[in-house]
Design a protein around this nucleic acid. Structure first.
Lengths: 238, 238
DNA sequence: CATTATAATTTGTATATACAAGTTATGCAA
DNA sequence: TTGCATAACTTGTATATACAAATTATAATG
């Protein structure tokens, strides 16, 4: 939060969200922003590149930083964001139920994928998410116990990521995700209001800390009619 | 292709893919790379940041650039990549059939979303993709005729993006995407081998040029059992 | 008025330096 | 040998300069 360019990035995001700069307009030039924030042009450019990466602006040479329309598909649900953070952003009323919170010593295939020691214990956490009175999402987590030692029912109901980042001081950095569609299981039938659906959308993710250690594997199972994934993508120049 | 840091980025990607640098190892330090490529440290850092953004490496302060395992879920299908490019990457044998290639003057809602003039014409392009003898994907495109004037059946069968970028010299820059699951339509029934499936995964995208003009709206409809979306995501620091 | 050439503005690239912060290696001392 | 302080190494941030390339504004010209 103290890095100059991150601070500037966040201030500009806020201004865009508040409509101080609206879609189609250009931001003040790098030269002007340099003066406004009393910094160097390169620092401003780092902040602007963050904006561009996250789909807030498009930089056009000779022209300026054009603010992009951000609501073609509501909010971007992609990226690495916890369920709590998403729910807050969407303003949805959400209820989380913890169905299981145990330590497992089996699940060797997951342990192998997470690359943790053979004798390491794993948290097994199963939660359902209820929106507008319907249980729509089933989250199954496997979390390394040696890295995140204390998980209570309360933290599992609230925000796990907040606990990991703020309480434990660990830096969650990146994730590898897969989205597929699969047939429902008995567990889905028991813990979700499937409403007749025979398949679910499954998001599997491995989540990593900044030092490249994987600490979590998540399987998030969504009822198809309530599932939406929104993404902003840039073309990587060959 | 002539930018120094992009050239270095591509060379390093190739070396990682070839296994010259393998997962878990660190790349040569920025200092060493600076010497190897006879350039400045900032230029090297731009190349390394591209690698980090695309999930090839994780930079760890004090340690180095750690090469990441890249095959937890095969290839990354996210981003802004044409079907042809994906198929080439996967080494799949694919057949594209063009079912419709016409100019439409209606579809005002799409025209509005694309933000093009009221009298602008749109290409309407419908293609099915056949993999291993099954028609699995149905692509429905709307493309601005004033920007991409000549589309032939042949270019539609081969690579549209290659034509747009290489022949027309336009720069495809970013896209806004949405993934949902929907019930099948009569058109799906006619043009796909649904194999009993009653729903399809629908990817809707608006695609933009570098000057922020939207030129394409695509609806890509996938048979659920053959659908896979793979993504690499980084956590944006608050 | 319209067209064209020129200048000013704006972003992109490449390079350089200084210091901060985290990790690893080294060497000294007990 | 062990432990600890120190040094060396590596990435992160902030700043500065010079020039290139694209766009826009201005002025000159017919």
């Amino acid at each position: 939060m103290k890095n100059k360019y991150v601070v500037i990035f966040n201030k500009l995001v806020k201004k865009i969200q508040q409509g101080v700069f609206s879609a189609g307009e250009t931001l003040p030039s790098e030269h002007e922003l340099t003066a406004q924030f009393d910094t160097s042009r390169e620092t401003i450019r780092k902040a602007l590149n963050l904006l561009a990466q996250n789909g807030y602006i498009q930089k056009v040479r000779g022209k300026g930083s054009v603010v992009l329309e951000r609501n073609k598909f509501k909010f971007p649900v992609s990226g690495l964001t916890s369920f709590k953070e998403l729910a807050d952003q969407m303003g949805q009323e959400v209820k989380t139920s913890v169905h299981e919170l145990t330590i497992v010593t089996q699940a060797s295939h997951i342990r192998r994928q997470l690359g943790c020691p053979e004798d390491a214990k794993l948290w097994r956490l199963i939660r359902s998410r209820e929106i507008d009175g319907e249980r729509i999402i089933l989250d199954k987590d496997y979390i390394r116990e040696d890295l995140i030692p204390d998980i209570t029912k309360e933290t599992a109901e609230q925000s796990l990521y907040h606990y990991i980042e703020e309480e434990l001081g660990l830096e969650i950095s990146f994730a590898k995700k897969e989205i597929v569609v699969e047939d429902i299981t008995d567990e889905d039938r028991e813990l979700l209001d499937l409403n007749g659906h025979q398949q679910v959308v499954v998001i599997r993710s491995y989540v990593y800390l900044a030092d490249t250690t994987a600490f979590q594997f998540t399987e998030s199972r969504h009822r198809p009619d309530k599932f939406q994934f929104v993404d902003f993508a840039r073309r990587t120049k060959a």
